[in-house]
Design a protein around this nucleic acid. Structure first.
Length: 363
DNA sequence: AAAGCGGGGTC
DNA sequence: GACCCAGCTTT
C-alpha cells in the first residue's frame, strides 16, 4: 500500500510523542476518568489556567456538584463561590447554563455528537475537540498554546499565531495530524510535551522525543517560535472603595452578570477622576452606585492588582453610613452583612484580600 | 479581525 | 514590567 510522504512524516511524529507520553505523563485527576462531565469540567477550568492551579478547584467542584444535574440545580451564587479566585468567571456562568441545557434537552446526558458539544455555551473549537477525542475517542484535533508552540517549532512555521489566518493554518495542520486511533492520547501527548518539555522560554530540547526532526532546533530558532504579536502596555487606574459600616453591618454590592467579574460581590467604589482626591472619589462613587451618603473615615488598606489588560491600585477606606437607603443604580444587588456571613459571598481576588484582612482583624 | 475577560507563575 | 497559560464570546 502506497503512503503519502506527509502521512509517513506525521506518523513518526505521533509515534515519538505517544511513546514519550506513555513514559512521562503526569498523574492528573481527570486522567483517571472517562466521564464526559469530569473531562468537560477539567477542560473548562484549564482554559488559560495552569494545571497546578486547577487541581484543588477541580476536586472541590466535583465534591460539591457530583453530577451535571446537581450543577444545573444549584444557585449561580454558589457555583460562582466554587470558582472564586480562578478567574474568567464567564467560564462557570456558561457551564451553569450548559448544565441546564443538558438537563432539559439531553435528559441529563452529556451529548456525544461533536456539533451538539460545540453548540453548548462556553465550548469552542478547542474544548469540543478535547472532549470529543479524550472522552469519546473521536478523531478531532485540538489547538491550544502548547500545540501551537510544538507545531510551530517542529515544522518551522513562522506565521503569526495570534492572527485569525495564523490560527487557521495551525488548525489545518493539527487536523491533518490527529490520528484515527487513540486521538485523545495523541492530543494529550502533544499538549503534555508543550507543558513539560517544549517550554516557551527554556525548551528542554535535550530530552525532547521530537528533537531530531525539529525544524526550530535544526536552525536554532526555538526562542523565536511561535511568532506572536505583542500586546500593548496595560494602563493603570486608581480605585477608591469603602467599607460602609452601619452598626456591625457592612455594605456589599453585586456586579452585573455580564462583563468584568460578572455576578461577583465587591465593596462599593470606582475609578478616581482627574484632579479628584481619593477620599472624594470614595464618597462620590458610593453615592453614584447606591444613592447612599457616607462619611469617609480612615484608610484601611491598599491592594495592587494586575488584570490582563490593565492594573489597579485599590484603596479601601472605612466609612460611616450617613443617610439614604441603598438602591442599586450601578449594581444588581446589595446586602448588609456581618463578618460571620461575608465569606459566603464570591469576591474577586482584589476584594477577597480585603475580606481576608477584615476576618483576620475581627477574629 | 480585534477586543474583552482573571489570576498566578516566571523571567 | 511583559509574557504565558489545556480559549470563548462579543463586537
Amino acid at each position: 500500500m502506497h503512503q503519502h510522504p506527509a502521512m509517513k512524516l506525521s506518523k513518526r511524529f505521533r509515534n515519538a510523542l505517544v511513546e514519550w507520553y506513555s513514559q512521562n505523563k503526569r498523574d492528573l485527576p481527570w486522567r483517571r476518568t472517562r466521564s464526559t462531565y469530569h473531562i468537560w469540567l477539567s477542560e473548562i477550568m484549564l482554559q488559560q489556567t495552569r494545571v497546578e492551579t486547577v487541581i484543588p478547584y477541580y476536586t472541590r467542584f466535583l465534591q460539591r456538584f457530583p453530577t451535571i444535574e446537581a450543577l444545573a440545580k444549584a444557585d449561580l451564587q454558589e457555583v460562582l463561590k466554587m470558582w472564586e479566585g480562578l478567574g474568567y468567571y464567564s467560564r462557570v456562568r456558561n457551564m451553569h447554563k450548559a448544565a441546564k441545557i443538558i438537563t432539559e434537552e439531553f435528559s441529563g446526558r452529556f451529548p456525544e455528537s461533536f456539533r451538539e458539544i460545540l453548540d453548548l455555551p462556553g465550548i469552542g473549537r478547542y474544548s469540543a475537540g478535547a472532549i470529543s477525542s479524550i472522552a469519546l475517542d473521536q478523531a478531532r484535533p485540538v489547538l491550544d498554546g502548547n500545540v501551537t508552540r510544538v507545531l510551530s517549532r517542529y515544522f518551522g512555521i513562522e506565521t503569526d499565531a495570534s492572527t485569525t489566518a495564523g490560527k487557521n493554518e495551525f488548525w489545518k495542520l493539527a487536523e491533518e495530524i490527529v490520528p484515527v486511533e487513540n486521538p485523545g492520547t495523541y492530543n494529550q501527548a502533544i499538549m503534555e510535551l508543550g507543558a513539560l518539555v517544549c517550554l516557551p522560554r527554556n525548551p528542554n530540547c535535550r530530552v525532547c522525543p521530537l528533537s531530531t526532526g525539529c525544524q526550530a532546533k535544526r536552525t536554532d530558532r526555538q526562542h523565536e517560535l511561535p511568532v506572536r504579536k505583542r500586546r500593548s502596555a496595560s494602563p493603570h487606574f486608581n480605585i477608591g472603595a469603602g467599607l460602609v459600616w452601619k452598626d456591625d453591618k457592612l455594605l456589599i454590592t453585586r456586579r452585573n452578570e455580564d462583563g468584568l467579574l460578572g455576578g461577583l460581590w465587591q465593596f462599593p467604589g470606582g475609578k478616581q477622576e482627574k484632579g479628584e482626591s481619593i477620599l472624594r472619589c470614595v464618597q462620590r462613587e458610593i453615592e453614584e452606585e447606591l444613592g447612599v451618603k457616607v462619611l469617609v473615615r480612615d484608610h484601611f488598606m491598599t491592594v495592587k492588582h494586575a488584570y490582563t489588560h490593565f492594573r489597579i491600585t485599590l484603596q479601601i477606606f472605612n466609612c460611616q453610613w450617613s443617610s439614604g437607603e441603598p438602591e442599586c443604580k450601578a449594581c444588581t444587588d446589595y446586602r448588609w452583612v456581618d463578618l460571620e456571613e461575608i465569606d459566603d459571598f464570591p469576591f474577586p481576588r482584589a476584594n477577597k484580600r480585603v475580606v481576608e484582612k477584615l476576618l483576620a482583624a475581627g477574629g
